[in-house]
Nucleic acid binder design. Structure first.
Length: 567
DNA sequence: GCCGTTTTCGGCCCGACTGTTTTCAGTCG
């Protein structure tokens, strides 16, 4: 599917147009890019149905451009812009502090058209002689280029959330704050995030800023003002701290949580109602009429509170206006983990130790799902070993009170769609989780058939990490995900949200689609060591981003209910 | 380039911070 490629080209067109000084069109392309990027369905299919222009933000022109790309593999406007504007300028505007205007000036007036030339000019102290530049800007350019080299793209939610929590703890330990909360894409539980935003209410903003800009992880301070400080952390990740007054806390939290599209949509609604929204509150003329809490803000705009994970402008605002938002599943609703590994294959904990830790977390059950024999590197079990493990599990279950270990297996789905273990062995299991770990590069047709074949096996209960993507490292394999979801619903095979930070597969939009198709979702941490059990919160984040309620998620059910459903 | 419960034309979210300026443009989120 070509969605990501088209989105990338639209982003580039937007940047090129920006550099040329064109107004408004860049944002139209950028918005289109964001929409296409988030689509879970193949744009080619939407195009076939003639429904492209039905998507908010995609008009006749963008739809034609998409069609052009699908037909020819390129977009004429993009090619023309590449000839008119040196592509190296796109790198230049990615340097923090430099934007399209500056890039255009550097190229037109000074002939600088690549990051290398820019770095050279800065090092030779030629930049500071140029109009609008000074010594400080030149230094910042060099720092920015350094950071760009160090930091490649976004980082995983699983890495960002702990960093954010550490920052919050360090601030709290060193100065008195009345409120402190992570905002931005981390709060929305986006699977990959670009920077960390933290919001604070403090009686002594100056002191808080000082503490923040000197905490242990800080490499460099980018900006430091009265209400906003931005720093680079040592790994090149940017963190922003904002200080607001208590009576603006809700408005600020709403504003800095985003997403951008959600906020723009919200502001337009406010505007139509004769209000103005900013990070300080909701205003009617000069008078502030809401802002202390997010709930108050949304309700004043005649909608119900919208959970952060939903704020992507994907219909949540309309649903909220009609009072039709889902009652999202919560971490507290989770009664067990349906995918963990033990030292019988490549996990580090014993079955019993893992069970006890899980029970300590308040769970009622776990499903042990070690690897099967064809995954030799992971010490996969064959039929005999598996039967021994089942016996062992039954024995432990008799010893433990108020907790159940489900005997499961993560069985490999072989290239032809058959499962890696005999049906006679699989029949003995409480839960059979199936997964693809080999031959990722089949054609879409072959891969779809392979997965469908596996799902049709009556022993298969859960399809693990259904798309196979690894965030930032491996694309989903080519497969018709709609067909797979439909078949899963028909055969009562659950689809997994794998909670491992670099998988988070299904992601939010896919989970939403799965629900629409009637499939149930199973959360599995894919735990290989006890600390991995806590990845559950990331999986719940994806479920919430997928609009799932507790009834949609197996893990909120009792063990008996799960076994009854999967039977 | 997109959009429409005032509009098919004329708008397009809004404020903080910086550097280099004598009052602000550019960038960022």
């Amino acid at each position: 599917m070509k969605n990501q490629e088209i989105a990338r080209i639209f982003y580039q067109i937007a940047d090129f147009l920006d550099i040329q000084g064109v107004a408004f069109r860049p944002n139209a392309y950028r918005r289109g890019a964001r929409i296409i990027e988030e689509l879970q369905e193949d744009v080619a299919k939407i195009k076939q149905r003639g429904e492209l222009t039905g998507i908010q933000g995609i008009g006749k022109n963008l739809a034609n451009k998409i069609g052009e790309y699908l037909k020819t593999g390129e977009i004429g406007l993009h090619n023309r812009l590449k000839r008119e504007v040196p592509p190296g300028l796109l790198d230049i505007i990615s340097v923090p502090g430099l934007g399209p205007k500056t890039a255009g000036y550097l190229y037109k007036e000074k002939g600088i058209s690549s990051l290398e030339e820019l770095e050279k000019a800065a090092k030779e102290r030629r930049l500071r002689q140029m109009k609008g530049f000074g010594q400080k800007t030149e230094e910042n350019v060099l720092k920015g280029i350094e950071m760009l080299k160090r930091m490649k793209g976004r980082i995983l939610l699983g890495e960002a959330l702990p960093i954010a929590q550490e920052i919050i703890e360090e601030i709290e330990s060193k100065c008195k704050v009345e409120r402190i909360c992570v905002a931005g894409s981390v709060r929305r539980m986006k699977e990959a995030i670009g920077d960390i935003d933290i919001l604070v209410v403090s009686e002594d903003p100056g002191k808080t800023m000082d503490v923040f800009s000197s905490i242990s992880g800080v490499q460099d301070v980018i900006v430091k003002g009265r209400t906003k400080t931005s720093v680079y952390l040592k790994d090149g990740l940017q963190a922003d701290l904002r200080v607001v007054d208590l009576d603006s806390y809700g408005a600020a939290l709403q504003y800095f949580t985003g997403s951008k599209d959600h906020n723009i949509h919200l502001r337009k609604i406010a505007q139509k109602m004769g209000y103005k929204v900013n990070e300080y509150g909701l205003f009617e003329g000069e008078r502030k009429i809401a802002g202390e809490t997010e709930k108050e803000l949304y309700e004043t705009l005649e909608m119900t509170y919208i959970e952060p994970e939903l704020r992507e402008d994907n219909g949540e605002i309309e649903a909220s206006q009609k009072g039709k938002l889902p009652n999202l599943v919560r971490l507290e609703d989770i009664k067990g983990d349906l995918h963990v590994h033990t030292n019988w294959s490549d996990g580090t904990e014993s079955i019993e130790d893992l069970a006890k830790i899980a029970q300590g977390m308040g769970y009622e059950y776990i499903a042990v799902a070690d690897h099967s024999k064809s995954l030799k590197v992971a010490g996969g079990l064959d039929e005999d070993e598996l039967m021994l493990q089942v016996k062992e599990i039954r024995k432990i279950n008799k010893r433990i009170k108020g907790f159940k270990i489900l005997a499961g297996i993560e069985v490999d789905i072989l290239g032809n769609g058959e499962l890696d273990l005999d049906d006679s062995a699989l029949k003995e299991m409480d839960v059979v989780v199936g997964a693809i770990h080999s031959k990722f590069s089949m054609s879409e047709k072959e891969m779809t058939e392979r997965v469908l074949e596996a799902i049709r096996n009556e022993n298969l209960d859960i399809l693990a990490h259904p798309t196979g993507r690894l965030i930032g490292r491996r694309n989903p394999y080519e497969a018709d995900i709609d067909k797979i979801m439909r078949e899963s619903a028909d055969t009562k095979t659950a689809l997994e949200i794998n909670c491992f930070p670099d998988r988070l597969d299904l992601n939010g939009p896919n989970a939403k689609r799965a629900k629409q198709m009637g499939a149930k979702i199973s959360l599995g941490t894919d735990t290989h060591a006890a600390s991995n059990l806590y990845f559950m919160k990331f999986g719940v984040g994806m479920a919430r981003r997928g609009w799932l309620e507790s009834k949609d998620v197996l893990n909120t059910w009792s063990a008996k209910e799960i076994l009854d459903y999967l039977k």
